[in-house]
Design a protein around this nucleic acid. Structure first.
Lengths: 114, 114
DNA sequence: CATTTTTGCTACGATTTCAGTAGCAAGAAC
DNA sequence: GTTCTTGCTACTGAAATCGTAGCAAAAATG
């Protein structure tokens, strides 16, 4: 037995809390899974090997990492390159661009919480 | 007993996978929790009551909703207004502005997955 | 008033997910 | 060969989430 492998959420299919499967809902479901945002974040600059990615994420368990990577590959956001490890696809990079302003926001936010 | 209430993650404190507590890491931890993105999304246009919010999110369990709302209030992203229910704070609205382009991205993404 | 609804929320057992460690097969380095 | 590193699977216990039930307070209704 290799794996029952649960498929990643996809637009058009019903997802958690949304029967319609509207793309943005599906995306929110996917991004809302534990470690996903962080993984993408760590890949923002350069490809990382499985092990490097694991370390970058503070040593999350390989099982979870592998599950998330499978979902992200399935969603064409991340790809695996021979000899380079895991990297964002072109799409994935675009997505991350959208998320980039979060850094600036988070700095202001941090101050407001003091 | 009222509440054991685990505190929301805060910049400066160590969070999941980040000993440093850099604001962006903390934010990713917070946003990466289940339903958080969706909840913010549903609040994008107008305040919603607890019940309305629950329905909007496809009937998620009130316990989780309440936990998430507590975290978001604690983080000054969401606030509770008398007679209006839950609403984004000014900060929260700014955050959501950053996230708005996700809709457009998700449409393109959906097509690429067909 | 008295009654029915609605609302915000808590309790709690059942599931699902995650964490954390151990370890293995395959390839590269020595 | 032997030792490392890498990608990944297996497994168990802990934690998060689900889903339903239900209750007290406020609001709407008659």
């Amino acid at each position: 037995m290799t794996k029952p492998q649960k498929p990643a959420p996809r637009p058009g299919r019903r997802v958690r809390g949304s029967a319609t499967g509207r793309p943005v809902m599906v995306l929110l479901d996917l991004l809302g899974r534990r470690w996903v945002l962080r993984i993408l974040w760590e890949l923002r600059d350069e490809p990382l090997t499985f092990r490097a990615l694991q370390t970058a994420c503070g040593g999350l368990s390989p099982s979870v990492l592998n599950t998330r990577l499978a979902e992200l590959r399935d969603s064409l956001i991340v790809e695996q390159r021979p000899d380079e490890g895991y990297a964002l696809t072109r799409q994935g990079r675009e997505l991350l661009t959208q998320l980039a302003p979060l850094t600036a926001w988070s700095e202001k936010w941090a101050k407001s919480l003091d």
